[in-house]
Simulated scan of single mutants.
Amino acid sequence: MISDHGLHVHRYGPARPVQVLAVHGLTGHGARWRHMAAALPEVSVAAPDLIGHGHSSWAAPWSIDANVAALAKLLEGTADGPVPVVAHSFGSAIALHLAAARPDLVDALVLLDPAIGLDGEWMAEIAAAMLASPDYPDAAQARAEKENGAWSDVDPALLDVELDEHLISLPGGRFGWRISVPAMMSYWSELARPVVLPDTTATTVVRATRTSPPYVGADLITALQARLGANFDLLDFDCNHMVDQAFPTEAAALVRKQLTRR
């Protein structure tokens, strides 16, 4: 793991120029990609903690644009050319903006249950709920929230890894995720920004069929189909929102497909 351009970057695979960029979702961290990377042992993967997450800087601004700038600097310094970007949820919004702003850095997109262009009232409700209850009295409650939510179909052993990596003790004896709550408030608003589309970048969207309510709406699919045509693929996975955790090997196969098509 290295610190680069203000981002803490988890590196997997051989010590060579970055071949794949992996971007986690809101409230997550880059080490979540270790499971997918294990199925790509010959591939050099960079998986940064986004701004306000994990061990990266928690300093403002907290925006999609700030993360795009940081990821662009990371790729400029570590990759030899454009690379496939695999991203989950909010990370997919950042990946789409990165591809639109810097197509010279992005060879393809693999978007796992992407969250972008979402309803503003819905995002306000989620932000208010997090602000009212940002932490937990004990680790058991933190685990139960995930088990009964988006992580419901993830291998319990992977959830153990998540808690070991990402859950921390807070002052007063409570527990919380290794995130900046003020940054999360800003990011929920960012998810209500209009959809941004790449011009020609080959894009695969995985829709998690058990996510309720769904993040991937018909408007996003229609827009990508109209913009990209044959460069767009839509796949349905029978899982909840945490696609990269529920199906790490299948996610790796989608990334490998983009690496081998060139």
Score class of each variant (00 low, 15 high):
V195S: 07
T200W: 05
A202Q: 06
P194C: 11
Y187M: 11
V195N: 10
A192D: 10
S180N: 10
V196Q: 11
W177V: 04
A202W: 04
V205E: 07
D199W: 03
V181Y: 07
V181T: 09
T201E: 07
P194Y: 04
A202H: 12
Y187F: 15
W177T: 08
T200R: 13
R193G: 12
Y187R: 01
D199H: 10
T203K: 05
M185V: 14
S189G: 15
V196K: 07
A202D: 07
A192G: 14
V196P: 13
I179R: 04
P182D: 06
R207S: 10
V181N: 03
W177R: 12
T200L: 08
P198T: 01
G176P: 00
P198E: 00
I179F: 01
W188P: 14
M185T: 15
T204D: 07
P182E: 08
P198A: 00
M185L: 15
T201F: 03
A183H: 00
P182S: 13
S186T: 05
S186N: 09
R178M: 05
G176I: 00
A183D: 01
P194W: 03
A202E: 05
T201I: 06
A202G: 09
D199A: 13
M184E: 13
A208K: 09
T204A: 06
A183N: 01
L191C: 10
D199K: 09
A208C: 07
R207Q: 13
V195Y: 10
P198V: 00
P194V: 09
W177S: 03
A192N: 07
E190G: 13
M184R: 04
S189A: 15
R207F: 11
L197F: 11
V205D: 06
A202V: 10
L191R: 06
S180G: 03
W188L: 11
I179Y: 02
S189C: 14
W188T: 14
T203H: 05
A208V: 13
V205L: 06
T203E: 07
S180P: 09
E190K: 06
R207H: 14
L191M: 14
R178K: 15
P198G: 03
T203W: 06
T200E: 14
L197K: 09
A202S: 11
W188Y: 15
V195R: 12
I179S: 03
R178A: 03
T204G: 05
A192Q: 04
L197R: 05
V195G: 08
A183M: 00
S186W: 01
T204N: 04
V196A: 10
A192F: 08
R207E: 13
P198H: 02
P194N: 12
R193M: 08
A202C: 09
S189Y: 11
S186D: 15
P198K: 01
T204P: 04
T200F: 05
D199R: 12
T203I: 11
R193H: 14
D199G: 09
L191P: 14
W177I: 03
R207D: 09
V205F: 10
R207P: 02
V206H: 08
L191G: 11
A208W: 05
T201Q: 04
P182L: 11
V205R: 06
T203V: 05
A208F: 09
A183I: 00
S180Y: 03
V181S: 02
L197D: 08
L197C: 08
V181Q: 03
S186M: 03
R193F: 06
R178D: 13
V196G: 13
G176A: 00
R207T: 13
P182R: 12
R193K: 14
R193S: 15
P182K: 10
W188H: 15
